[in-house]
Lab assay of single mutants.
Amino acid sequence: EPIEAIAKFDYVGRSARELSFKKGASLLLYHRASEDWWEGRHNGIDGLVPHQYIVVQD
């Protein structure tokens, strides 16, 4: 079951695997890939989301 998150800041992906998004964007998170990253989805694209840039919705 994906988790919803909201972007705290704009983020520009630094590689093809990283998602880019704007502050306030809604993201879906699948699972924690590491301490710093989530596997997630934004605008229909799957990729990595940096933990420091999002607020996970409970």
Rank of each mutant, 00 (worst) to 15 (best):
R41M: 05
G47N: 01
R41P: 01
E18D: 12
R17Q: 10
L27V: 08
D58G: 11
P50K: 11
Y11G: 00
L19H: 08
K22S: 13
D36I: 08
Y53V: 08
F9K: 14
G13T: 07
K23M: 10
G47Y: 02
I3C: 02
G24F: 06
D36P: 06
D58Y: 04
S15L: 13
Y11T: 02
V49M: 03
F21G: 00
R41N: 15
R14A: 10
I3H: 03
E39W: 07
G13S: 13
P2Y: 15
K8Y: 07
H51K: 14
V12S: 11
R17K: 02
S34F: 07
G44V: 04
G44P: 00
P50L: 08
L19C: 07
A33T: 05
H31Q: 08
E4G: 07
H51E: 03
Y53T: 07
L19N: 02
S15R: 15
R14W: 04
H31M: 10
I45K: 15
S20E: 05
L19K: 00
A16H: 09
F9D: 14
E4K: 11
S26Q: 11
S15E: 15
L29H: 01
S26A: 12
A5F: 03
A7S: 07
G40Q: 02
D10F: 04
K22R: 11
W37C: 05
S20W: 05
I3P: 03
N43D: 15
G13A: 14
A16N: 07
R17T: 14
L29N: 01
D36T: 11
W37G: 02
I6V: 14
W37R: 05
G40V: 01
E39A: 08
K22P: 07
D10N: 13
V12C: 13
G24K: 08
E1F: 15
A16L: 10
D36A: 13
D10G: 04
G47M: 01
K23D: 05
K22M: 09
A25N: 08
E4R: 06
G24Y: 06
D58F: 11
H51C: 03
R32D: 00
S26C: 10
H31T: 07
A5Y: 04
L27E: 01
I54V: 14
K8T: 12
D36H: 11
V49P: 00
D36N: 07
G47K: 01
I3E: 07
R17S: 11
R17P: 10
L48A: 12
D58R: 11
H51M: 04
A7C: 05
V49E: 00
I3T: 10
G13K: 15
Q52L: 06
E18R: 04
L27A: 00
S34H: 05
L19D: 00
E35G: 11
D46Y: 08
S15G: 14
G47R: 01
I3L: 14
D36G: 13
L29E: 00
P50Y: 03
S15Y: 07
H31L: 07
A33V: 11
V55F: 06
D10A: 10
P50T: 02
H51T: 09
N43T: 08
R32F: 03
H51Y: 05
G13V: 02
A7N: 02
K8R: 09
A16M: 05
Y30S: 12
R14C: 06
K22A: 13
A16E: 11
